[in-house]
Amino acid sequence: MTKKYVMLADATRCINCKACVIACRAEWGTPLGHSRDWVREVEMEGPGGMPDLMLLPGRCQHCDDAPCVESCPSGAAYQREDGVVLVDHELCSGCELCVPACPYDARFLNPETGTVSKCTFCQPRIDAGQPPACVGTCVGRALVFGDANDPASEVSRLLQEKEWLRLTSDGVNVGPNHYYHTGGRPLPPEALPKPTTPHVQGRLLEEVVNPLAGAGLLGMAGVFVAAGMKKLLDRRSEVQRQEGGHHD
């Protein structure tokens, strides 16, 4: 059976120690100023005006309907059968059309490679049977990674045992495969994804050029198919007329 990789993050166990962030930097040599993963510390007001905190570790959410893949013109962004969204660095042009397409801000142009980088769930590690670097190092064991299609896996068990939320909102739901347990508390609005504003060229391509082109091509083809049909019909009736003439 095909694997379905998911990441679980237990916010009640996360302590914002950033071990995941540094382990990731060490594993992939991410240049300073960029990171493939993060921990979001949301300060809130609890009951009675008391302070409250929510800690949400995050990274690429490896969405089922990854908008980055959909917005990539080079064929560099792709998704494997097991759900892992990856970048083919040989193909990536660095045009960044995918960067604002991501509602989780998970992608960035890597100045060292000139291509777009992001979390890969540590693809070479998981393919070799190791956990992603962030999961292996997580001090509170807040991060759990695994195959949700394997009923014996830890993630399958946890998905059943606890209540899990995903970072989706009314406007944005692209099927993220990153789950959060918050101990029954709702996710704070500032942690939820906002609709993205893609690059103007991407929008023009999607909303103007392609529809226009589609309409133009179909229209033009339609006209000439019709013309051809008419010609055919005319000729047939001509032939009939002529044949009829013979009979006459």
């Binding site: 309907d65 490679t113 890969t120 693809q123 739901n173 909303e207 392609n210 589609g214």
Partner: peptide
């Protein structure tokens, strides 16, 4: 399925799932 409705699907035929392709990809 999709985040925003848009015009890109105009020419799509059948919604062939691109991710199911066994394409050869080059990691960096």
């Amino acid at each position: 399925r999709r985040r925003f409705l848009g015009g890109a699907g105009l020419l799509a035929v059948g919604g062939y799932p691109a991710r199911a392709l066994a394409r050869v990809k080059a990691p960096h």
